[in-house]
Amino acid sequence: MPLLAVRDLTIALPVGGRMVTIIDSVSFTLGAREILGIVGESGSGKSMTALALMGLIDAPGARITGSARFKGRELVGLPQRAFRDLRGREIAMIFQDPMTAFTPVYTVGWQIDEQIRAHGRVTRKDARARTIRLLGDMGVPDPARVADRYPHQLSGGLRQRAMIAMALSCNPSLLIADEPTTALDVTVQAQILDLLRRLRREYGSSVLLITHDMGVVAETCDRTMVLYSGIIAERGPTGAVFARPGHPYTAALLDSIPPLHGARPARLPSIPGSPPAPADRPAGCPFTPRCAYAHDACAVRPPLLPRGVQDIACVLPAEGRDLPARCATV
Protein backbone atom coordinates (compact mmCIF):
# COMPACT_ATOMS: atom_id res chain seq x y z
CA MET A 1 0.00 0.00 0.00
CA PRO A 2 1.46 3.39 -0.94
CA LEU A 3 1.90 5.95 1.83
CA LEU A 4 -0.39 8.36 0.03
CA ALA A 5 -2.89 7.55 -2.69
CA VAL A 6 -4.74 10.47 -4.22
CA ARG A 7 -7.61 9.65 -6.53
CA ASP A 8 -9.62 12.13 -8.61
CA LEU A 9 -8.97 14.98 -6.20
CA THR A 10 -11.09 17.89 -7.37
CA ILE A 11 -11.25 21.28 -5.72
CA ALA A 12 -13.78 23.95 -6.65
CA LEU A 13 -14.08 27.41 -5.17
CA PRO A 14 -16.98 29.84 -5.47
CA VAL A 15 -15.92 32.78 -7.63
CA GLY A 16 -18.43 35.50 -8.45
CA GLY A 17 -21.44 33.33 -7.67
CA ARG A 18 -20.44 30.15 -9.50
CA MET A 19 -18.20 27.23 -8.67
CA VAL A 20 -14.88 27.30 -10.49
CA THR A 21 -12.79 24.15 -10.65
CA ILE A 22 -9.24 24.83 -9.52
CA ILE A 23 -7.95 21.24 -9.45
CA ASP A 24 -9.55 18.76 -11.80
CA SER A 25 -9.34 15.01 -11.09
CA VAL A 26 -5.75 14.85 -9.92
CA SER A 27 -4.58 11.31 -9.08
CA PHE A 28 -1.16 10.15 -7.90
CA THR A 29 0.54 7.92 -5.37
CA LEU A 30 3.55 8.47 -3.18
CA GLY A 31 5.52 5.53 -1.88
CA ALA A 32 7.66 5.20 1.22
CA ARG A 33 11.04 6.96 0.91
CA GLU A 34 10.00 8.55 -2.33
CA ILE A 35 10.42 12.14 -3.47
CA LEU A 36 7.65 13.21 -5.83
CA GLY A 37 7.93 16.54 -7.58
CA ILE A 38 4.84 18.53 -8.45
CA VAL A 39 5.90 21.12 -10.97
CA GLY A 40 3.89 23.82 -12.66
CA GLU A 41 3.60 27.53 -13.23
CA SER A 42 1.68 29.96 -11.05
CA GLY A 43 -2.00 29.10 -11.07
CA SER A 44 -1.44 25.47 -12.04
CA GLY A 45 -2.90 24.28 -8.74
CA LYS A 46 0.24 22.79 -7.22
CA SER A 47 -0.02 24.60 -3.89
CA MET A 48 -3.79 24.00 -3.69
CA THR A 49 -3.14 20.27 -3.94
CA ALA A 50 -0.77 20.48 -0.98
CA LEU A 51 -3.12 22.60 1.11
CA ALA A 52 -5.94 20.13 0.51
CA LEU A 53 -3.77 17.26 1.74
CA MET A 54 -3.01 19.23 4.91
CA GLY A 55 -6.69 20.12 5.45
CA LEU A 56 -5.76 23.77 5.17
CA ILE A 57 -8.28 24.95 2.60
CA ASP A 58 -10.67 27.03 4.65
CA ALA A 59 -12.16 29.24 1.92
CA PRO A 60 -15.90 29.41 2.60
CA GLY A 61 -17.86 27.33 0.13
CA ALA A 62 -14.86 25.35 -1.10
CA ARG A 63 -15.85 21.93 -2.44
CA ILE A 64 -13.29 19.15 -2.25
CA THR A 65 -14.20 15.81 -3.79
CA GLY A 66 -12.36 12.63 -4.68
CA SER A 67 -10.16 10.75 -2.31
CA ALA A 68 -6.78 11.09 -0.65
CA ARG A 69 -5.82 8.11 1.47
CA PHE A 70 -2.87 8.56 3.78
CA LYS A 71 -1.77 5.24 5.32
CA GLY A 72 -5.20 3.98 4.39
CA ARG A 73 -7.00 6.82 6.17
CA GLU A 74 -9.26 9.09 4.12
CA LEU A 75 -8.22 12.75 4.31
CA VAL A 76 -11.00 14.24 2.19
CA GLY A 77 -13.78 15.25 4.55
CA LEU A 78 -11.71 14.52 7.66
CA PRO A 79 -12.86 16.76 10.53
CA GLN A 80 -10.45 19.53 11.53
CA ARG A 81 -9.95 17.96 14.98
CA ALA A 82 -8.63 14.77 13.39
CA PHE A 83 -6.50 16.76 10.97
CA ARG A 84 -4.92 18.60 13.89
CA ASP A 85 -3.75 15.30 15.25
CA LEU A 86 -2.26 14.33 11.91
CA ARG A 87 -0.59 17.62 11.07
CA GLY A 88 2.88 17.96 12.51
CA ARG A 89 2.92 14.38 13.79
CA GLU A 90 2.26 12.45 10.57
CA ILE A 91 2.30 15.05 7.83
CA ALA A 92 4.44 18.16 8.07
CA MET A 93 4.78 21.04 5.71
CA ILE A 94 7.51 23.55 4.96
CA PHE A 95 6.94 26.75 3.08
CA GLN A 96 8.75 29.18 0.87
CA ASP A 97 8.93 31.82 3.55
CA PRO A 98 10.13 30.53 6.93
CA MET A 99 9.22 33.86 8.52
CA THR A 100 5.57 32.89 8.23
CA ALA A 101 6.15 29.49 9.84
CA PHE A 102 7.80 30.93 12.95
CA THR A 103 6.27 33.47 15.24
CA PRO A 104 8.68 36.38 15.65
CA VAL A 105 8.21 36.68 19.43
CA TYR A 106 9.71 33.37 20.57
CA THR A 107 13.12 31.87 19.97
CA VAL A 108 13.44 29.26 17.25
CA GLY A 109 14.39 26.62 19.84
CA TRP A 110 11.36 27.40 22.02
CA GLN A 111 9.07 26.91 19.01
CA ILE A 112 10.58 23.58 18.06
CA ASP A 113 10.45 22.42 21.71
CA GLU A 114 6.79 23.39 21.80
CA GLN A 115 6.05 21.34 18.71
CA ILE A 116 7.77 18.29 20.20
CA ARG A 117 5.90 18.69 23.51
CA ALA A 118 2.55 19.25 21.83
CA HIS A 119 2.72 15.82 20.23
CA GLY A 120 4.21 13.73 23.02
CA ARG A 121 4.94 13.61 26.73
CA VAL A 122 8.42 14.99 26.79
CA THR A 123 10.11 17.08 29.46
CA ARG A 124 11.31 20.54 28.56
CA LYS A 125 14.91 19.42 28.92
CA ASP A 126 14.51 16.38 26.68
CA ALA A 127 12.66 18.44 24.10
CA ARG A 128 15.49 20.96 23.97
CA ALA A 129 18.06 18.21 23.63
CA ARG A 130 16.11 16.82 20.70
CA THR A 131 15.74 20.29 19.17
CA ILE A 132 19.49 20.83 19.31
CA ARG A 133 20.14 17.41 17.81
CA LEU A 134 17.67 18.10 15.00
CA LEU A 135 19.17 21.49 14.22
CA GLY A 136 22.60 19.89 14.13
CA ASP A 137 21.30 17.19 11.78
CA MET A 138 20.00 19.89 9.48
CA GLY A 139 23.51 21.27 9.16
CA VAL A 140 23.02 24.25 11.49
CA PRO A 141 26.41 25.25 12.90
CA ASP A 142 26.46 25.76 16.69
CA PRO A 143 22.86 24.49 17.12
CA ALA A 144 22.62 25.24 20.86
CA ARG A 145 23.27 28.90 20.23
CA VAL A 146 21.01 29.09 17.17
CA ALA A 147 18.16 27.57 19.23
CA ASP A 148 18.32 30.62 21.51
CA ARG A 149 17.93 33.07 18.67
CA TYR A 150 14.82 34.73 17.32
CA PRO A 151 13.81 34.04 13.71
CA HIS A 152 14.79 37.51 12.49
CA GLN A 153 18.32 37.03 13.81
CA LEU A 154 18.97 34.11 11.45
CA SER A 155 19.95 34.19 7.79
CA GLY A 156 17.49 32.90 5.19
CA GLY A 157 19.35 29.60 4.85
CA LEU A 158 19.47 29.02 8.63
CA ARG A 159 15.79 29.87 9.00
CA GLN A 160 14.94 27.37 6.30
CA ARG A 161 17.01 24.71 8.07
CA ALA A 162 15.32 25.55 11.37
CA MET A 163 11.90 25.24 9.72
CA ILE A 164 12.82 21.85 8.29
CA ALA A 165 14.04 20.82 11.76
CA MET A 166 10.68 21.87 13.22
CA ALA A 167 8.81 19.99 10.49
CA LEU A 168 10.82 16.83 11.17
CA SER A 169 10.63 17.12 14.97
CA CYS A 170 7.89 14.49 15.26
CA ASN A 171 9.29 12.18 12.59
CA PRO A 172 6.45 12.69 10.12
CA SER A 173 6.15 10.02 7.44
CA LEU A 174 5.24 12.65 4.86
CA LEU A 175 6.91 16.00 4.36
CA ILE A 176 5.24 18.47 2.01
CA ALA A 177 7.69 21.11 0.82
CA ASP A 178 6.08 24.03 -1.02
CA GLU A 179 8.74 25.97 -2.95
CA PRO A 180 11.23 25.42 -0.11
CA THR A 181 14.17 27.03 -1.91
CA THR A 182 12.54 29.71 -4.03
CA ALA A 183 13.50 32.58 -1.73
CA LEU A 184 17.07 31.37 -1.27
CA ASP A 185 20.28 32.19 -3.08
CA VAL A 186 21.54 29.45 -5.39
CA THR A 187 24.44 28.36 -3.21
CA VAL A 188 22.11 28.03 -0.22
CA GLN A 189 19.46 26.37 -2.39
CA ALA A 190 22.01 23.73 -3.34
CA GLN A 191 22.61 23.06 0.38
CA ILE A 192 18.89 22.70 1.12
CA LEU A 193 18.32 20.37 -1.86
CA ASP A 194 21.23 18.28 -0.64
CA LEU A 195 19.53 18.20 2.77
CA LEU A 196 16.20 17.04 1.29
CA ARG A 197 17.94 14.18 -0.51
CA ARG A 198 19.66 13.23 2.75
CA LEU A 199 16.38 13.24 4.71
CA ARG A 200 15.08 10.40 2.63
CA ARG A 201 18.27 8.40 3.24
CA GLU A 202 18.60 9.14 6.95
CA TYR A 203 15.03 9.69 8.18
CA GLY A 204 13.21 7.56 5.62
CA SER A 205 10.85 10.45 4.90
CA SER A 206 8.68 10.67 1.82
CA VAL A 207 8.67 14.13 0.33
CA LEU A 208 6.12 15.88 -1.84
CA LEU A 209 8.16 18.68 -3.39
CA ILE A 210 6.21 21.50 -4.98
CA THR A 211 8.14 23.83 -7.23
CA HIS A 212 8.08 25.89 -10.39
CA ASP A 213 11.74 25.13 -11.07
CA MET A 214 12.41 22.23 -13.43
CA GLY A 215 16.06 22.26 -12.35
CA VAL A 216 15.09 21.66 -8.72
CA VAL A 217 12.90 18.73 -9.75
CA ALA A 218 15.65 17.20 -11.89
CA GLU A 219 18.06 17.33 -8.99
CA THR A 220 15.85 15.91 -6.25
CA CYS A 221 12.77 13.99 -7.35
CA ASP A 222 12.37 10.31 -8.18
CA ARG A 223 9.15 10.95 -10.00
CA THR A 224 7.71 14.09 -11.50
CA MET A 225 4.16 15.24 -12.06
CA VAL A 226 3.62 18.24 -14.33
CA LEU A 227 0.48 20.25 -13.65
CA TYR A 228 -1.03 22.68 -16.09
CA SER A 229 -4.17 24.64 -15.38
CA GLY A 230 -5.36 22.29 -12.65
CA ILE A 231 -4.86 19.02 -14.53
CA ILE A 232 -2.00 16.57 -14.74
CA ALA A 233 -0.33 17.06 -18.11
CA GLU A 234 2.23 14.35 -17.58
CA ARG A 235 3.81 12.22 -14.88
CA GLY A 236 6.51 9.60 -14.71
CA PRO A 237 10.03 8.83 -13.52
CA THR A 238 12.00 12.10 -13.53
CA GLY A 239 14.71 10.82 -15.86
CA ALA A 240 12.16 9.75 -18.48
CA VAL A 241 10.08 12.93 -18.24
CA PHE A 242 13.17 15.08 -18.80
CA ALA A 243 14.69 12.93 -21.54
CA ARG A 244 11.48 12.16 -23.46
CA PRO A 245 8.75 14.62 -22.44
CA GLY A 246 5.48 13.28 -23.78
CA HIS A 247 3.28 16.34 -23.35
CA PRO A 248 3.96 19.38 -25.53
CA TYR A 249 3.67 21.55 -22.42
CA THR A 250 6.47 19.69 -20.63
CA ALA A 251 8.63 19.86 -23.74
CA ALA A 252 7.97 23.58 -24.26
CA LEU A 253 8.62 24.33 -20.59
CA LEU A 254 11.98 22.56 -20.75
CA ASP A 255 12.86 24.32 -24.00
CA SER A 256 12.14 27.76 -22.60
CA ILE A 257 14.79 27.44 -19.88
CA PRO A 258 17.94 29.18 -21.12
CA PRO A 259 20.79 26.65 -21.19
CA LEU A 260 23.76 27.18 -18.88
CA HIS A 261 26.09 25.15 -21.08
CA GLY A 262 26.62 24.65 -24.79
CA ALA A 263 25.62 27.01 -27.57
CA ARG A 264 23.44 30.01 -26.78
CA PRO A 265 20.27 29.99 -28.88
CA ALA A 266 19.72 33.21 -30.85
CA ARG A 267 16.20 33.28 -29.44
CA LEU A 268 14.75 31.29 -26.58
CA PRO A 269 11.87 29.07 -27.58
CA SER A 270 8.99 30.56 -25.60
CA ILE A 271 5.39 29.54 -25.06
CA PRO A 272 3.06 32.17 -26.54
CA GLY A 273 0.36 33.69 -24.36
CA SER A 274 -0.14 32.84 -20.71
CA PRO A 275 -2.04 30.15 -18.79
CA PRO A 276 -5.82 30.70 -18.69
CA ALA A 277 -7.50 31.88 -15.49
CA PRO A 278 -9.38 28.98 -13.84
CA ALA A 279 -12.76 30.43 -14.87
CA ASP A 280 -11.68 30.76 -18.53
CA ARG A 281 -10.19 27.33 -19.14
CA PRO A 282 -11.10 25.94 -22.54
CA ALA A 283 -13.34 22.87 -22.66
CA GLY A 284 -10.82 20.52 -24.26
CA CYS A 285 -7.14 20.27 -23.45
CA PRO A 286 -6.38 23.48 -21.51
CA PHE A 287 -3.00 23.87 -23.25
CA THR A 288 -4.58 24.03 -26.75
CA PRO A 289 -4.45 27.84 -27.17
CA ARG A 290 -0.67 27.87 -26.56
CA CYS A 291 0.25 24.52 -28.11
CA ALA A 292 2.28 24.20 -31.31
CA TYR A 293 0.60 20.82 -32.01
CA ALA A 294 -3.00 21.91 -31.45
CA HIS A 295 -5.50 20.36 -33.84
CA ASP A 296 -9.16 19.33 -33.98
CA ALA A 297 -8.78 16.34 -31.67
CA CYS A 298 -7.70 18.70 -28.85
CA ALA A 299 -11.25 20.01 -28.44
CA VAL A 300 -11.97 16.98 -26.25
CA ARG A 301 -10.15 16.76 -22.90
CA PRO A 302 -7.62 13.93 -23.37
CA PRO A 303 -7.46 11.37 -20.54
CA LEU A 304 -4.19 10.59 -18.76
CA LEU A 305 -2.97 7.46 -20.55
CA PRO A 306 0.16 5.36 -20.09
CA ARG A 307 2.88 5.65 -22.71
CA GLY A 308 5.98 3.67 -21.84
CA VAL A 309 6.87 4.48 -18.23
CA GLN A 310 5.00 7.81 -18.33
CA ASP A 311 1.35 8.84 -18.20
CA ILE A 312 0.44 11.57 -20.64
CA ALA A 313 -2.72 13.62 -21.07
CA CYS A 314 -2.34 14.36 -24.76
CA VAL A 315 -3.79 12.96 -27.98
CA LEU A 316 -0.41 12.85 -29.76
CA PRO A 317 0.84 9.46 -28.49
CA ALA A 318 -2.46 7.79 -29.45
CA GLU A 319 -2.06 9.30 -32.92
CA GLY A 320 1.39 7.76 -33.17
CA ARG A 321 3.03 11.18 -33.12
CA ASP A 322 5.39 11.05 -30.16
CA LEU A 323 7.44 14.13 -29.43
CA PRO A 324 11.15 13.95 -30.28
CA ALA A 325 13.47 12.95 -27.44
CA ARG A 326 15.55 15.77 -25.99
CA CYS A 327 19.26 15.43 -26.15
CA ALA A 328 20.60 15.67 -22.64
CA THR A 329 23.07 18.52 -22.66
CA VAL A 330 25.90 19.00 -20.15
Partner: peptide, 21 residues
Protein backbone atom coordinates in the same frame (compact mmCIF):
# COMPACT_ATOMS: atom_id res chain seq x y z
CA UNK B 1 24.99 25.43 -7.66
CA UNK B 2 22.48 26.14 -10.44
CA UNK B 3 20.01 23.26 -10.58
CA UNK B 4 19.88 22.26 -14.21
CA UNK B 5 16.94 20.54 -15.83
CA UNK B 6 19.05 17.47 -16.51
CA UNK B 7 18.95 14.30 -14.45
CA UNK B 8 22.36 13.25 -13.17
CA UNK B 9 23.33 10.28 -11.01
CA UNK B 10 23.69 11.32 -7.34
CA UNK B 11 27.47 11.04 -7.27
CA UNK B 12 27.95 13.39 -10.24
CA UNK B 13 26.86 16.43 -8.31
CA UNK B 14 29.50 18.76 -6.95
CA UNK B 15 29.24 19.19 -3.16
CA UNK B 16 27.49 22.49 -2.45
CA UNK B 17 29.37 25.51 -1.20
CA UNK B 18 29.29 25.62 2.59
CA UNK B 19 27.88 28.34 4.81
CA UNK B 20 26.07 31.55 4.10
CA UNK B 21 27.22 34.85 2.67
Amino acid sequence: AVPEPVVLPDGDRAPPLRGDV
